[in-house]
Design a binder for these strands. Structure first.
Lengths: 235, 235
DNA sequence: TCTGATGAAATGTTGAACATTTCATCCATA
DNA sequence: TATGGATGAAATGTTCAACATTTCATCAGA
């Protein structure tokens, strides 16, 4: 966006680049949960050495996007219900504290305006992907109100981990309007400075999301192979 | 504590072990901020290959205990005021949400009891190290009330990063009683279910801590060399 | 059916080599 | 004196090849 930021040259190491590429495949579901990533095979595929690939694994592991066991390699984690509960607790915790740090000063109003803008995007979204993006934008704005990079980073990781779930994409299918409406309620409360009510509303949005995700997952349960599968496939 | 947990054998990879060792040196201040860690020299010292050491670096980097620049190696980060502000914002955010998730049910009472117990430890502490440990225990208990591993982990990293500061140890010198008193106020509010007041009190404890840390740092400012120093020293 | 031996395959770790980058030093120039 | 490149040593980034150790599937035998 800003053309002057061309000065900020940041180079990417090979492991970083590989991690970026893999992250993409993971978040789009191209490499689904349960898959085992083999070093020799994959490193040949990607065109880097085994070390570089292992380095990339470490990066994604730190983000919670890969699961590593000693001598057993890495797999794409299949989120258990316990883990999902944990993730949502963390998500709610961050959003809770985010909402409560939105005051009615200038900074706070900027946050609220951004939330409103995200709601508009929800309504004008043309597919589930856009809808999910607007949703993410909204919730991220809330958390960003805390004003801490560390918090922002954790929240990004949380969101990324949720996207690993195959059911995540389907979660919000077909209720653009309802979604916008519930999210709008939070904004209205915030504009009146009623943080507690805003928070409570936001928490219930989360609870609904969690329940939907869990049911969506249990519906897909039959489709999934439970044993780790090799990647890349043999063709 | 539980003797049955001997079954849970977890093995440590070489990089993990090295990271553990280095973490210790970092948190005790034996390797102070500003120091540059050289791969060849240090790997020989530790007795592992360069690869393994680099792997260990990555682990500590993810914890915020080392700072890595491409082609420039790793250094022990010297926390800037901005960074300290960020860390404290994160810390406050987590403690805020922690306090608000302490209900007056059984789980909540357990948390409060733990906090009280930590206060006792503050009072009976014989040196600054014990005092700091009790303080950490208290605040950790608050955050643990959220019930999320991810949150707990972030909080651990936050605390670790603060300990990197040389001034951190000196921060609380000589006011055991005052410290216990202010922390006790939070507990009393919590026992009455007055979360908002408890939170506000806890936030101000944090603000005081931050201010003290900043002043302690600026007092030490003259002592420090600003340029990165090699590690290990030449002897 | 269960158990344990067996061996292939995968991961963990090392060492050496080479490419690239950084950094301090020195020198020429204004 | 200060500035601005060249220069080269040292450090990091990456690869390759090898070997140790562990896992895992298979299978023979009780």
């Amino acid at each position: 966006m800003a053309s002057a930021s061309r000065l900020a040259i940041d180079q990417w190491s090979a492991p970083q680049q590989v991690a970026n590429g893999l992250r993409d495949l993971l978040l789009t579901g191209e490499i689904p949960p349960g898959v085992k990533l083999r070093e020799v095979q994959l490193s040949k595929e990607v065109g880097v050495s085994r070390h570089t690939l292992r380095s990339a694994f470490r990066i994604l592991e730190a983000e919670g996007l890969l699961q590593h066991s000693l001598n057993r390699g890495v797999i794409v984690p299949e989120l258990s219900e316990d883990r999902i509960a944990d993730v949502f607790k963390a998500r709610k915790a961050l959003e809770f504290t985010g909402v409560h740090s939105i005051d009615l000063d200038e900074a706070g109003r900027r946050v609220i305006d951004q939330m409103e803008l995200s709601i508009d995007r929800m309504l004008s979204s043309r597919d589930d992907v856009e809808l999910a993006a607007a949703d993410l934008e909204y919730h991220s704005a809330v958390v960003a109100a805390v004003g801490s990079h560390m918090i922002d980073e954790l929240y990004r990781n949380i969101q990324a981990q949720l996207r690993l779930t195959r059911a995540w994409a389907v979660r919000t299918r077909g209720d653009r309007e309802l979604m916008a409406k519930t999210h709008e309620v939070v904004v209205r409360f915030l504009r009146e400075g009623r943080k507690a009510e805003a928070a409570s509303e936001l928490m219930s949005i989360n609870d609904v999301g969690e329940k939907r995700l869990l049911t969506a997952m249990s519906e897909n349960r039959g489709t999934e192979t439970n044993r780790p599968v090799a990647w890349p496939p043999d063709d």
